[in-house]
Nucleic acid binder design. Structure first.
Length: 804
RNA sequence: GGGGCGGUGGCGGAAUUGGCAGACGCAGGGGACUUAAAAUCCCCCGGGUUAAACCGUGUGGGUUCGAGUCCCACCCGCCCUACCA
């Protein structure tokens, strides 16, 4: 009955059967524990990439493992279908974005099916579908009605290539480039829609309820950038209020000048006639160069004196006001008190322009002199030159945890000169995009009534199909002759639609909810499904979204919770990130480099199971690494050998009970390890353990173990252990070769027999002074004295024991 | 400047968390089978030695009977972030 292993035949066969049987349909079942395994949905950019497989296939294997453990597992899939590449294709190739997108989705669905994943396709959701974006718009309106969305004019990042604004998170690198096209962004002053993500800043850095990687927690914590300190109310000499934020209120007495961001609104007022020209020039220079050079790392400090003065509220000192581009309008108040003695940047600035330096913190054994200090002192010490606070000790701690700081803050509050304050780097989320292929922002502007949301019964606000594509890349929505004309939902007079669309991260912030009930029309999701499936138990995907999608979706959930739409504080309990598959040359895969590995070709050549197995095996999943096209042969050989072991006639011979026992011990040790490794996302050692175990089984089989009555049971357990990783071959061998009832994927994950984990013989490792001298097999229940005696008399160790 | 991750054979990587370093696989070498090749199977595969000793997990110290693993100091690579007051 020797059949050849032909993945090209068995894989499509089982995929079709599983689908026809609805094997992986996940329905509410109150008698079973649910498990929501979510993997990040792809953007339909063309073909499925090996990176998609790398992310999804091991996630699928783990979801299957959970299913075999008895969970009711939901493993859905969908498409993040709005976005700029579709529009670029439209401009360059004259294809409508919708056509381009949905054609790609059709192709990717086929490719995804070839993976043999346990996707419940009934739950597929596509964000560009009107039945989906209706609810994206609905969420916008909920936010607007509850003071979480607002419109504001502000300087925003603008990509001249993509012709749109970007969220702060989408601007990368030293040179402030657009994350998509790499073009340097410029600042534009525009009226845009924002979400109040900052309202949740503190909650977003609280990870106490979720099991997320340290790396992501750190990234998000840094991104939110919480600083504790105080606001201090300075005044200009003319009496205008000029508040600053500082983390070091203890150094207030050492403030010898003040620096405003060049764009600060008070600059004009404080600038004197003599300085006006210099200030203007500097402002223009700063605005022109913007971000690019302002961010340059080791840049020399530049700045201009305004001619104006501020009064330090703690000692009435009259200090000069400068403007300099090292102070950013976007953080704090865009104004700082400069304490050159205790801040490196202020120190550099003071030395550059010959400004006064007054030390106010002194560690023991030091005697600072502002004239001669070589660098700013930022450590702890005792307050000096600080009036009634002289002698107060300040530590390294931040905020009120630092007793010295707390004392100063209390005093500032008592005297009404300032107050405790917390500042964040996190900005509100800018969601307006000047693009066509996105969910229209469902707002109407009326000269009388201002901005108002489209009534719920008029949702969705549909994208018009008949649009013209201009090579300038300007949004065709804005240029459409009639689309924006409507009536004001409040007064009924003519109104104008918002022609901007929403950032696609808005769509992906809630797709895990749409999966629950993609057909549901009474709300964004069916509450019954929500109650059963949410929260997501494990979320897998790339780490590149740490400061974007993964912050947005947490914000979204918390905001919806406060609106009574969702429950619980977090959408995803556990997060695990895979690494990246690089090209064979060690570089990032790209068409231009010609180092792209196509999963379709690999599936044609080796079959999906081999590709899945190799993706789990070839690197640590969380690290990834360069593709090695030779290495896949090892996985191919493994599956061939598995096939042969199951299909070849047994060798002649009797086998000893000892051998069978030792095989079973190896089997259960492997089972123990594979079970543990699935829990830990350590996929590479799952495959290597299975390979190792196969080698053991083959050796035993050659000695005649195949004739032993326990042999079939051993093979069954081996198949069950393989099933999550390589589902097709496991099914074929289970159903067709072993003749067991369909389906292997409905079987229980085997239990480890603890008795088989106990070895009856162990190898005694004999070390003398830490060096290996001998190894002797002894019974596992050997007594301590016996072991000691064996060790001391061992032939290997004896020569090294002389003279001890 | 700040933060994170990492450094183990020719390569990807193991090492049950302080106890046999290099599992498993790739590549390589040798052999069997074959007219031949492929496939398959067997053996070898860190350095060193006839064999041992000995050396060996980025470097230098330390703790320990014993360190890839813990502590201190440093070097290198990659990624993120950045004049954040």
């Amino acid at each position: 009955m020797v059949k050849e292993y032909k993945p090209g035949e068995i894989e499509p066969k089982w995929q079709a059967k599983w689908e026809a049987d609805g094997l992986y349909n996940a329905d509410i079942n109150e008698n079973k524990k649910k498990f929501y395994a979510l993997t990040m949905l792809p953007y339909p950019s063309g073909d499925l990439h090996i990176g998609h497989w790398y992310a999804m296939a091991p996630s699928d294997a783990r979801a299957r493992f959970k299913r075999m453990q008895g969970y009711n597992v939901l493993f859905p899939m969908g498409f993040d279908a709005f976005g700029l590449p579709a529009e670029n294709a439209a401009i360059s190739r004259g294809i409508h974005p919708q056509e381009w997108t949905f054609d790609n989705i059709d192709r990717m669905r086929v490719q995804l099916r070839s993976m043999g994943a346990m996707i419940d396709w009934r739950r597929e959701a596509v964000s560009a579908d009107p039945s989906y974006y209706k609810w994206t718009q609905w969420f916008f309106i909920q936010f607007f009605n509850n003071d979480l969305a607002y419109r504001k004019r502000s300087p925003v990042d603008w990509c001249p290539q993509c012709n749109t604004t970007l969220a702060r998170e989408q601007v990368h690198g030293d040179d402030r480039h657009c994350e998509r096209c790499g073009t340097q962004v410029i600042k534009k002053d525009l009226e845009q829609w924002f979400f109040k993500t900052t309202k949740y800043a503190d909650e977003l850095i609280d990870f106490s309820q979720i099991d997320w990687p340290d790396r992501v927690r750190t990234l998000q914590t840094n991104w939110v950038g919480r600083s504790e300190g105080a606001d201090v109310y300075f005044k200009t000499e003319e009496g205008a209020e000029l508040t600053v934020f500082t983390t070091r209120p203890d150094t207030l007495w050492g403030a010898t000048f003040m620096v405003l961001a060049p764009e600060h609104p008070l600059v004009d007022a404080v600038t004197t006639a003599e300085q006006r020209e210099a200030v203007r020039n500097y402002q223009q220079e700063a605005a022109g160069k913007t971000e690019i050079q302002r961010a340059a790392a080791d840049k020399e400090k530049t700045g201009v004196f305004t001619g104006g003065y501020a009064i330090n509220p703690v000692n009435e000192a009259r200090i000069p006001i400068w403007i300099a581009d090292y102070v950013m309008m976007g953080y704090g108040y865009g104004a700082i008190m400069a304490v050159p003695a205790h801040d490196e940047r202020d120190f550099a600035f003071a030395r550059q322009f010959g400004l006064e330096i007054i030390p106010v913190i002194q560690p023991e054994g030091e005697n600072f002199d502002g004239e001669t200090m070589a660098e700013a002192y930022v450590g702890p010490g005792m307050m000096i030159n600080s009036a009634q606070f002289n002698g107060t000790q300040v530590t390294d701690d931040k905020g009120r945890k630092n007793p010295g700081l707390a004392k100063v803050i209390d005093w500032l509050e008592a005297e009404e000169l300032g107050k405790e304050a917390i500042s964040y780097k996190l900005r509100d989320w800018l969601i307006s995009r000047q693009r066509y292929w996105g969910a229209p922002i469902p707002m109407v502007h009326c000269a009388e009534c201002g901005w108002n949301p489209v009534p719920e019964e008029d949702l969705p606000v549909l994208l018009p199909k008949d649009v013209e594509w201009l090579p300038t890349g300007e949004s065709p929505l804005k240029l459409h002759p009639t689309w924006k004309e409507t009536t004001c939902p409040v007064c009924g007079e003519p109104g104008v639609r918002e022609t901007d669309t929403m950032d696609t991260f808005m769509c992906s912030s809630w797709y895990h909810l749409r999966y629950l009930s993609p057909e549901y029309s009474d709300g964004p999701f069916d509450p019954r499904e929500y109650d059963y499936w949410m929260p997501v138990d494990v979320y897998t995907g790339g780490i590149e979204h740490a400061n974007m999608h993964l912050i947005y979706t947490r914000f979204f959930h918390k905001a919806l919770r406060d609106l009574g739409i969702t429950e619980g504080h977090e959408p995803m309990l556990q997060l695990r990130n895979q690494g990246m598959v690089l090209g064979e040359d060690g570089e990032k895969m790209s068409k231009s480099r010609g180092n792209v590995v196509s999963p379709d070709d690999l599936v044609n050549q080796y079959g999906a199971d081999t590709v899945r197995g190799y993706l789990m095996f070839f690197a640590r999943w969380d690290l990834g690494g360069p593709w090695n096209s030779q290495g896949i042969a090892g996985t191919e050989r493994w599956l061939n050998r598995v096939w042969n072991l199951f299909t070849e006639e047994s060798e002649e011979g009797e086998v000893s009970p000892d051998l069978i026992k030792s095989v079973k011990q190896t089997l259960h040790a492997a089972l123990d390890r594979v079970t543990r490794d699935y829990e830990r996302f350590e996929f590479n050692t799952i495959i290597s353990t299975l390979m190792e175990l196969l080698n053991t089984l083959y050796d035993a089989w050659r000695e005649g173990a195949g004739n032993h009555p326990e042999w079939p049971g051993i093979l069954e357990t081996y198949l069950l252990m393989m099933a999550p990783a390589v589902p097709h071959i496991a099914e074929e061998l289970w159903t067709e070769v072993l003749g067991k009832p369909y389906s292997v994927h409905n079987q229980q994950w085997p239990e480890v027999d603890p008795e088989l984990l106990v070895k009856d013989e162990i190898t005694l490792i004999i070390q003398v002074n830490g060096k290996l001298r001998d190894r002797i097999d002894v019974p596992a229940d050997i007594s301590e004295e016996e072991a000691e005696k064996t060790a001391l008399t061992s032939p290997g160790a004896a020569p090294f024991l002389e003279g001890e």
